[in-house]
């Protein structure tokens, strides 16, 4: 697999540029799973601050309410591994800044909440030939709406139940969101462990 002109086999694991766009239920749990697996270098993108309502499913703590998600998440990741090398960008991603934010990425995790931003991030990353791991459908329980992994190409995966939509009333719940996030992280771990 070629990432930004480099063959993945020739890239040092710590040298792969991973960008996590959105640090809510998906992004915070993807980052947590990667750091626990020894992937310590990544960039976090989010515009939001931690709120009390996030604590039912996102990897934050009560004393972090009010802090920007990116810095709170970095602190939590560094408590797992002090060597974690985390870059933070506290911005809302849009048409105007997406190229600046993603152009040097090798891997893009699409972990955004808003449907049109999900499309924006995925389209950009596909056109720019990144390894893209996106999500669609993360609500309710996994028993009722099981999450699947769709491998569209070697460099494009979408995880989710492809049915539940938060905008039309589905409830995001901790276990299901964690399952989807864990599957997203699992895809990259699988590629790095078995396909390089």
């Amino acid at each position: 697999m070629i990432l930004n002109g480099r063959t993945i086999e020739n890239i040092n694991k710590g040298d792969i540029r991973i960008v996590i766009v959105g640090c809510g239920g998906l992004g915070s749990n993807v980052a947590m799973n990667l750091v626990r697996a020894g992937i310590l270098s990544m960039e976090l993108i989010d515009f939001d601050v931690v709120s009390e309502s996030n604590l039912d499913r996102q990897f934050y703590f009560r004393d972090q309410v009010g802090r920007p998600k990116v810095t709170a998440l970095k602190a939590n990741l560094c408590r797992i591994d002090p060597h974690a090398d985390i870059q933070c960008l506290n911005v809302r991603i849009s048409d105007d800044n997406i190229a600046d934010i993603l152009s040097s990425a090798d891997v893009v995790f699409e972990c955004v909440d808003d449907q049109s931003v999900k499309e924006l991030v995925t389209r950009y990353a596909l056109v720019a030939d990144k390894l893209v791991i996106a999500a669609s459908g993360i609500g309710e329980t996994n028993m009722k709406y099981p999450a699947k992994v769709r491998k569209i190409s070697d460099k494009f995966y979408v995880v989710g139940d492809f049915a539940t939509d938060i905008r039309t009333g589905a409830t995001p719940m901790s276990a299901k969101v964690a399952i989807v996030a864990a599957q997203q992280a699992d895809i990259l771990l699988d590629i790095l462990k078995y396909h390089t």
């Binding site: 239920g25 909440d113 999900k118 669609s136 769709r150 049915a163 938060i166 969101v177």
Partner: peptide, 10 residues
């Protein structure tokens, strides 16, 4: 052909 429809939630 794969059609990816994004649903809100993250």
């Amino acid at each position: 052909i794969d059609i990816i429809k994004f649903l809100a939630g993250g």
